[in-house]
Design a protein around this nucleic acid. Structure first.
Length: 236
DNA sequence: GCCAACGTTGGC
DNA sequence: GCCAACGTTGGC
């Protein structure tokens, strides 16, 4: 998903509180069906404790994540007459180095975004480009609120099936934290993934490979820390 | 630009 | 609720 950010942060307070009810309250049937099937009956008590610590299970047994990877396209591509380019430098250039991660139109990705909490970290991943890979780290500065672009006919991610009274799509605000000390290419991560899959290791189940098309993905703390540790090493 | 993988849609 | 057709993602 190539979200196209606009301005910095939260001047969308209207939709925020209005939308919030819709989003947490009445999830329409269709919303949740596309979630990881099988599990998730609807947690009686949503996440309360474990928020900031390691990724673990909540009361209902659902895994709680606190590290993320979000994909965006750093190279120009025209979609519906609009350039969807948005790389890490574009985020950094916004006021307060903050932007809204709009344009996510996949239920699983959306549901992960809904789980995001303020202060959590996410890798900024460059997709659909010369050399795909992790470019930096950002943090969540505003939790899920209505993605207004779904109602905008001019927007490349306009969704005519979504109605203002019951919005389908949400976004979060993210703030640039830093670029990684070096660019960490997908090709390198893949080598580790294959190695770890064969012999064991932190990246053996990394979503980047096991669910490669997901534009918003969770990482376990082990995955996150391992990837971070690569910053200081040479490429393999 | 190709195309594999996979998500979505809609007929039945 | 199945599944074929279709659309999209994103690496290569």
């Amino acid at each position: 998903m190539p979200p196209k950010k606009r301005t910095g942060g939260s001047r969308n307070e209207l939709s925020t509180s209005a939308g919030q009810d819709n989003l947490s309250g009445n999830e329409s049937a269709e919303d949740f069906d596309n979630d990881v099937k099988g599990k998730r009956k609807k947690p009686a008590t949503e996440t309360s404790a474990k928020q900031k610590g390691t990724s673990e299970k909540d009361a209902s047994g659902k895994t709680v994540y606190c590290h993320w990877l979000m994909k965006s396209e750093p190279e120009s591509r025209i979609q519906n007459g609009v350039d969807v380019k948005f790389g890490i430098e574009d985020l950094k250039a916004l006021p307060n180095q903050t932007g809204c991660w709009d344009g996510v139109r996949n239920y699983q990705a959306r549901n992960f975004m809904r789980d995001m909490k303020v202060e959590q970290q996410a890798f900024f991943y460059h997709s659909n480009c010369k050399e795909p890979g992790i470019a930096g780290i950002m943090k969540i500065v505003k939790e899920a609120y209505v993605d207004h672009t779904q109602f905008d006919k001019k927007d490349p991610h306009y969704d005519p099936s979504s109605k203002p009274g019951n919005p389908k799509w949400i976004m979060v605000d993210v703030q640039f934290e830093r670029k990684t000390k070096r660019y960490i290419p997908l090709s390198e991560l893949k080598k580790y993934h294959l190695r770890h899959k064969a012999k064991g290791g932190p990246l053996k189940n990394m979503a980047l490979f096991t669910r490669s098309r997901l534009s918003v993905q969770p990482l376990t703390e082990e995955e996150f820390n391992f990837v971070l540790s690569l910053e200081g090493k040479g490429r393999i």
